[in-house]
């Protein structure tokens, strides 16, 4: 019985039906289905499918945004129950666009996909100086840091950030992922990052492995 509703929730998120998602989550809660199951088997299962389709160019940015909206409606309903039942997020991640770079759309998409795999994300914004990132890493228990750079002229700040973290003695505290249009696997290795991914869905899949 419970599987049916969870499948329906997944279906609603995949289709981007925000109102339906909200109602189905409420229904599932009323039927005393565990909040963690609703989250993992209903909401996040849907985003995994959407992410895969996005990676395969079966759906594009608009569809991802529409599904993310439905996901948000669902998680908003679920939040108090997750807290009450002691369900914690998979883990924490920090994301930002590096210094000198104002692009945020790609970063925002990655953030949504990270939330879509159950991570709690601290978004530092754009044009973030290495010092600020060091501070955030020091004070957070995040296990993954995602650095986004969209221009060849700002890629260097990814290296600067990694160097600053090393100098501050916190490089080993966190796994660093890099991404953005001009960034490559090779460059990532060169600057000492732990991972490079080429799109938001892959980023989420890769980040999950660090938890």
């Amino acid at each position: 019985m419970s599987n049916v509703i969870l499948d329906q929730i997944s279906e609603a998120v995949q289709k981007g039906k925000a109102r339906d998602t909200k109602e189905l989550v409420q229904k599932a809660i009323a039927e005393k289905i565990g909040a963690k199951d609703i989250l993992d088997k209903g909401l996040l299962a849907a985003m995994a499918i959407v992410g895969k389709k996005f990676k395969n160019n079966e759906v594009f940015v608009p569809e991802v945004l529409i599904s993310a909206r439905a996901l948000n409606m669902g998680t908003a309903e679920l939040k108090p129950y997750l807290a009450a039942q002691g369900v914690k997020p998979l883990g924490k991640a920090i994301i930002c666009t590096v210094k000198g770079d104002l692009h945020d759309i790609g970063k925002n998409l990655v953030r949504m996909m990270l939330e879509g795999v159950g991570l709690e994300v601290q978004d530092l914004g754009v044009d973030v100086a290495p010092e600020k990132i060091v501070e955030a890493v020091k004070t957070s228990d995040a296990k993954v840091l995602c650095l986004s750079a969209l221009l060849t002229t700002t890629m260097g700040a990814q290296k600067d950030t990694i160097d600053a973290l090393a100098a501050a003695g916190v490089r080993d505290k966190i796994k660093i992922m890099v991404g953005g249009a001009p960034v490559t696997e090779e460059y990532a290795k060169q600057i000492g990052a732990d991972a490079y991914t080429s799109d938001a869905a892959s980023a989420a899949t890769a980040a999950k492995l660090f938890f």
Partner: peptide
């Protein structure tokens, strides 16, 4: 750009 208020409205206005 980089306006969280705009981004939230944007996400919620797409349907």
């Amino acid at each position: 750009t980089n306006n969280e208020i705009f981004q939230n409205f944007y996400l919620n206005s797409i349907t």
